[in-house]
Amino acid sequence: MNRRAFLASLGTAALASQVPLRAQEGPAAASGRITLLHTNDTHSRIEPFGPGNGAISGLGGVSRRATLVRQLRQQLGSVLLLDAGDTFQGTPYFNRYKGRLDYQLMRMMGYDAGTLGNHDFDNGVGMLVEAMEAMEQLQHANAPFAFLNCNFDCKGAPALQKRVRPYLVKDFPGVRVGLTGIGVAFAGLVAPKNHEGITWRDPYESLRPVVKRLREVEKVDLVVVLSHLGYNLNGTGPDDLHLPGQVAGIDAVIGGHSHTFLETPTRVPQAQGETLVFQVGFGGVNLGRMDFAVARGQVRAASGAAMPVLA
């Protein structure tokens, strides 16, 4: 598909997706829609994958991702750009810029929130905080993005603690979204000296009160979890697939860690409704997209035409 066709398809998709569910303006709006765009395990892949990388050769690249996100934002309006962790480690860009570049580019792209993966601790807590600071200090129109996690006890690392929040609420016309994050256990993945002052807690137990608060106190319409647990550990540990069965009230799990390429989200039934569990590979090869619509406080099916973006 050439660029003109690509842009044309964007316009058509946006028209089809916005008209039927057009949100009412103002805080008292009874309905609205939200699009979640997401990445995971980008691993410092600033440039597209070069030749010799099999099926992912030529794919990815921060610059293209920025274009796609900007166009979708212009067309759709209510968009959240999210990441499920492991931004660091994998290319010379990380070795040279220590993650500062990755986080600064994420801010330039307009990320709203991300969580922390095990590799984000590869240079220790101090360097992680330095990268966060570099992102905060960037002179840019976009606000700094939030780091979300509810199962790392960061009391022993105050500089990180003040930058990582357990949850975030974002309001859009007709939709109030609650976001939180969870991280994988450090054991066997992160050297003790690199997570000094941070204690890992059980993600299911940590999530329950946060989701309850988001539902009952913050009164959100949609609960989204950014997870770096991995898609399916076959019962050997907490994972994304088993999360909805353990913690009620989650609408979407945006996963990472296992580098799982899913074509569509896995729908995990719950006692009431279901949870969508999604993950889109690694290295920024793909951007995930999930659309939700809320009508009179209930999450409903979103309409919208498929938007092909062919390589």
Binding site: G58, E263, G273, F292
Partner: peptide
């Protein structure tokens, strides 16, 4: 009931970031 997930039957898709997508000039 209030804690249970609703019916989030949303549209979802994977968007491959291929060469047909132009670079963002600022980035």
């Amino acid at each position: 009931l209030s804690l249970a997930a609703q019916a989030p039957l949303g549209k979802a898709q994977v968007l491959p970031l291929g060469s047909t997508i132009p670079d963002d000039p600022a980035i």
